[in-house]
Design a protein around this nucleic acid. Structure first.
Length: 435
DNA sequence: CTGGGGATGGGGCCC
DNA sequence: CGGGCCCCATCCCCA
């Protein structure tokens, strides 16, 4: 006979004990804030704690202390509440950092939920888009204030107020009832900076057509390194800035799906039918697939591992490009003397993380022929198949999975470069200190 | 210190 | 809708 409520009550009791600091034998220090918890519970919930507590299990009489700087106390609150309740309080504002922390703590369930949450945003964005375009023009005055506010208000009505997501008791957005709270739009009126070359080019092409709100040049591109920086910095800063942007955008009269260039106001009759808005930034794309691709720069998802070196890419074409240049060394040019090579007159060499071709003369002169890579071993290498997409991607600063990536490789080249991938991982950790 | 070049990554868009 | 190409910006290394 099984009492179904037993597990729930047990967890409830443990959570109660945690809140009353009863039998807590583990202290977690997150950016100065101390959390109390039970070793058993942490051990069972997190791969990171499992390893940590396994190592310190010999000294069970001593209370264990773990220290984290990679995420904020608020984020850890969400994580810890999930551990003790099974409820993950996700919002559009905290999902990135929660996923980063979950990745760090090796909590695969939480990562999966975060991924689902992000994916659900695609559907939500589409629905809201439809709702937006179905609005009557009669409801909008000439400057479009009502339109933008109505749209944002639609989101806000079913989401939590700023920062309230940090407290699970204050109407946070729970998984399943997902709604993004920080839908943001770039206010075109704020765009005082000149167009970049790229934008000028785009502008010259598209000026006769409607354009969606352009991404502000002030907003940096979403590069993985920056994402890692963001993931490791205190969330307060991130959340704060996002809130400021939100407030400005809500009050801006030019917010919305109009694009203005000087005095040129494109008639809204030219609005494209399909627009997909990124829930994390101001970016708008025409195709859902493009938004899906764009979202990877926020999630840090890199589903395409290089079979040769383990380096991961967010896009297949980037992997393809990387593979051709790095591992196939398709450019038959000596990097030193710039002379054209053949397979016989030159070899692929690697120096740190870089791989390139050198002619035999430069190779001998440099005395680095000892690290030559056998080109014959490269030919069997193929790009990863779809099947391994979701299972092995990692996020942010967690590079541990790189070690796993090269497990299935069997060629000489891969064996040679397993060390290299470790070097790259080391280098990524060292670089921030250097620069 | 600086400019050049390679590698990487993001966006647009065609097929 | 995915694959892939092109273009561009940025980062980083090196001479």
């Amino acid at each position: 006979m099984e009492i179904s409520s037993h597990q729930f009550h047990l967890l409830q009791q443990l959570n109660e004990q945690r809140r009353q600091d009863l039998f807590c034998d583990c202290s977690i220090l997150v950016q100065g804030k101390v959390f109390k918890a039970h070793r058993n519970v942490l051990f069972a919930s997190s791969g990171y704690f499992k390893m940590l507590l396994s190592q310190s299990s010999k000294e069970t009489s001593q209370p264990t202390t773990a220290t984290f700087q990679a995420f904020s106390p608020d984020t850890f609150t969400v994580i810890l509440d999930f551990v003790y309740s099974g409820k993950l309080s996700l919002t559009g504002q905290n999902v990135i950092e929660v996923m980063s922390a979950a990745s760090y703590l090796q909590m695969t369930d939480v990562i999966s939920v975060c991924k689902t949450f992000i994916k659900s945003s695609l559907d939500i964005s589409e629905k809201e888009k439809d709702r937006y375009f179905s609005l009557s023009d009669k409801d909008v005055n000439s400057n479009g204030v009502d339109r933008s506010c109505l749209y944002v208000a639609g989101w806000r009505a079913e989401s939590s107020p700023p920062r309230s997501h940090l407290n699970p008791d204050q109407g946070t957005c729970m998984m399943g009832g997902s709604a993004w709270s920080n839908l943001s739009y770039y206010p075109t009126s704020q765009r005082n900076t000149p167009l970049s070359k790229h934008e000028q080019r785009q502008d010259s092409i598209k000026k006769s057509r409607h354009l969606g709100p352009q991404q502000s040049p002030d907003i940096p591109h979403c590069k993985s390194s920056k994402l890692e920086d963001r993931a490791s910095e205190p969330s307060g800063h991130v959340t704060q800035s996002e809130e400021q942007v939100q407030i400005e955008e809500v009050e801006s009269p030019q917010v919305g799906y109009q694009y203005t260039q000087g005095s040129d106001v494109i008639p809204r009759d030219d609005l494209p039918r399909m627009r997909f808005k990124c829930p994390f930034c101001t970016h708008v794309v025409k195709r859902k697939a493009d938004l899906k691709r764009h979202l990877r720069c926020h999630t840090g998802e890199r589903p395409y591992p290089c079979e040769a070196c383990g380096k991961r890419f967010s896009r297949l074409d980037h992997l393809s490009s990387h593979f051709r240049t790095i591992h196939q060394a398709c450019k038959l040019i000596c990097r030193k003397c710039k002379r054209h090579l053949t397979e016989r007159t030159g070899q692929v060499v690697q120096e740190g993380t870089r791989r390139y071709r050198l002619c035999n003369g430069c190779l001998a002169a440099a005395g680095i022929d000892s690290i030559r890579i056998d080109l014959d071993a490269e030919t069997p290498l193929e790009f990863p198949q779809e099947g391994d997409k979701d299972s092995r991607w990692h996020y942010g600063e967690d590079n541990k999975s790189d070690v796993e990536i090269v497990e299935d490789g069997s060629t000489d080249l891969i064996i040679q470069q397993v060390d290299d991938s470790e070097d790259e991982a080391e280098e990524r950790e060292v670089k921030p200190n250097i620069r």
